[in-house]
Each structure stands twice: as structure tokens, then as C-alpha cells.
Design a protein around this nucleic acid. Structure first.
Length: 307
DNA sequence: TGAAGGCGTTCTATTACATCA
DNA sequence: AATGATGTAATAGAACGCCTT
């Protein structure tokens, strides 16, 4: 399902700017950024781990990120100890998918050249080809190490034009999620560090964050839509009420004296309507009396400005 | 100082694959 | 077994900001 953001927030005077909820958020975090009612989906501020105490998950602990600490996460309890053996990320416990995630990166080529699709001196297409060929190399290696859960008939051919889909392990997802809680965007250093921890290519980490931001924004948009819908309903009700009140006032004006006639559509000169500045109720004033649109506003009986 | 171009990054829309019911 | 729905990794292209010339 694709949810289109309604462009009615501004017209309703709501503090909702759906189109820019996430966009450039990290860049504007310090200045005049309007925020809608927020789901707790997006890390809006700087890491609260610096001074606060984020709740660590069972697997993820404080100072787990390599850009926050010197000791790499791979030395933790569940990470690959470097051998690429069974206890590595997403190891044998992963019920589905190939283990290409945990293949050890055996070359610096990855970080140096493939960390960004926009590396210097390379046309985009050429870089993509390098990515693809490098992926194929890795996948061939993966096929040697593990078999795909379902039909793996096309594993060997390299799939001209077919694209393999990696499934992140639970642990990898958990770490990425935890990282996302701290930073919805990563600088290159963080990206590379995280990629190393996860045994993924930096590009994969980058893509994961892109998609994660998109998911967050989609969810936030859904929440905002709900909010706007409720606002719209409330305003409709209020509008009805005000219309009714206006009709009553017109009826009062149309009446010869205090008698209320139910001619709701008779015109009333605006100059004869006076609003009480304190309670914001409207009184009709003529040369004989002051009549109020609703009973119980006798405090206006002397003069409309008295209250 | 402003314009132009290159580069890096992000966003959005979309595709393609994997899994599940 | 086939199929549609769903989730998500990956891709393409546009836009933006920053830097250099």
C-alpha cells in the first residue's frame, strides 16, 4: 500500500509538514525545524547515549558502536571472532537465506573503493559493474560455504541479470536498528565502522539506512494522516457548531425584540454584532436592548465591552 | 563576490527477490 | 504446487549542499 501524504496540513494551520518530516532532518536539527506529532520511530536528536542511558537490548549494549568505542563490536559475545566460523553474525541460527552476510571481507578493496557509489574518478556505471562483479565473487564463495534454503538452482550460474537478495540476520538487523536509534544517518566513518562490525559492505549499510529512513517516514506519514483526519473531523464538528450559532444569531436579529424567530437565513448587518472580548460570545446590539445568542450570558447585559 | 562545475549524500520511486498464508 | 500479499534489499535518477576554480 502506498500512502500519499495529504497536502492540507498548512491549510489547516497545523504544525505538520509531512513532506519534510525526515528530509534533511539531520541537517537542520539545530534550526527551526518544525516537527509534527512524532512516532517514536526516528532519532530526532543527537545520541542520547552520550549522556543519557539508552535502553540496551539483550544483545546490544552501550558503547557497542565502533565509532563510539575503540574496542570493535566483533569482539563482543556474539560477533565473529575473525575466523568466519559458525558463531559469526547470522550464523547457523539464521533460518533462511544465504550466509553471504557473514563472509569475511578479505580485501581492503571493499572499503577503499566500494564504500561509496560516488568514489572519485569512476563513472557511476563502472562502479556499479565493479559492485556487481564483486558481489558475484562473494556469492560464488557463499555458494561454496552454504546452501540456500529453497531452490538454489540458480546459485551456481551467477544469474545473468538476476539479483540475489541477501537477508540480514537477526543480530545484524538488531545492531542496525540500534545504530539507527542513535543516528538516522551515518557519516562515512560510522558507516565503514558499522559495515566492518556487521561484515557487510558499506554500501549495504548505506542502503539499509536509506530504506530504514524511508520506512520511518512512511510510518510517520501514516500517523500524520491519522492525526489530520481527526483534526479534520474536529474542525468539521466545530464548523457545524459555529454555523448553527450564526444561524441562531441571525434569527435573534430577525426577531422584532427579544423574541427569537427561527428565520435562520435572514441577513444581519455585521456592524450590529458585538463580541465579548473575554468569553468571545457574540451579542447583538440594537437601540433597544442587548440580546445574547445563548442564555446565561447576563454579564453582558450592560455593555458588550464590560466583561 | 558570484557563477559554474564536480563530488558526495540523501530522498523518492521503483524493481526484484524471498517468504508466508 | 501455485499464487497473491507482504517485507525489504537494491537500483535509478533527481535534488541538494559543499567545495573549488
Amino acid at each position: 500500500m502506498r500512502l500519499m501524504a495529504p497536502d492540507c496540513g498548512a491549510s489547516l494551520g497545523l504544525n505538520v509538514d509531512i513532506g519534510k518530516i525526515v528530509q534533511r532532518g539531520h541537517e537542520n536539527s539545530g534550526s527551526g525545524r518544525r516537527l509534527p506529532v512524532q512516532l517514536d520511530l526516528l532519532p530526532l536528536g543527537p545520541s542520547h547515549s552520550a549522556s543519557g542511558t539508552p535502553e540496551p537490548s539483550s544483545l546490544i549494549t552501550k558503547n557497542m558502536f565502533s565509532w563510539q568505542q575503540q574496542q570493535p563490536f566483533r569482539n563482543g559475545s556474539w560477533t565473529n571472532s575473525g575466523s568466519g566460523a559458525s558463531q559469526s553474525l547470522g550464523g547457523a541460527s539464521s533460518p533462511r537465506g544465504i550466509d553471504m552476510n557473514q563472509l569475511p571481507l578479505t580485501t581492503e578493496f571493499d572499503d577503499a573503493v566500494l564504500s561509496s557509489p560516488s568514489s572519485i574518478g569512476m563513472m557511476k556505471r563502472e562502479r556499479e559493474k565493479m559492485h556487481e562483479s564483486f558481489d558475484l565473487e562473494r556469492e560464488r564463495g557463499a555458494c561454496d560455504l552454504s546452501s540456500r534454503g529453497g531452490g538454489g538452482s540458480d546459485d551456481e550460474d551467477g544469474g545473468a541479470g538476476s539479483r540475489k537478495k541477501l537477508r540480514l540476520s537477526k543480530e545484524q538487523s538488531a545492531l542496525l536498528e540500534e545504530s539507527f536509534k542513535h543516528h538516522s544517518t551515518l557519516n562515512p566513518k560510522q558507516k565503514n565502522a558499522l559495515a566492518k562490525q556487521l561484515n557487510l559492505r558499506p554500501r549495504q549499510v548505506e542502503v539499509w539506512f536509506q530504506n530504514r529512513r524511508a520506512r520511518t517516514k512512511l510510518k510517520q506519514t501514516e500517523v500524520d494522516c491519522e492525526l489530520l483526519k481527526r483534526c479534520c473531523e474536529t474542525l468539521t464538528i466545530e464548523n457545524r457548531r459555529l454555523l448553527k450559532e450564526l444561524q441562531e444569531l441571525r434569527a435573534i436579529k430577525a426577531a422584532p425584540s427579544r423574541v427569537i424567530a427561527h428565520d435562520f437565513y435572514s441577513p444581519l448587518p455585521a456592524a450590529t454584532l458585538t463580541m465579548c472580548p473575554s468569553c468571545e460570545r457574540v451579542a447583538t446590539v440594537d437601540n433597544r436592548s442587548i440580546t445574547f445568542s445563548k442564555p446565561g450570558y447576563s454579564h453582558l447585559s450592560q455593555a458588550p465591552t464590560a466583561c
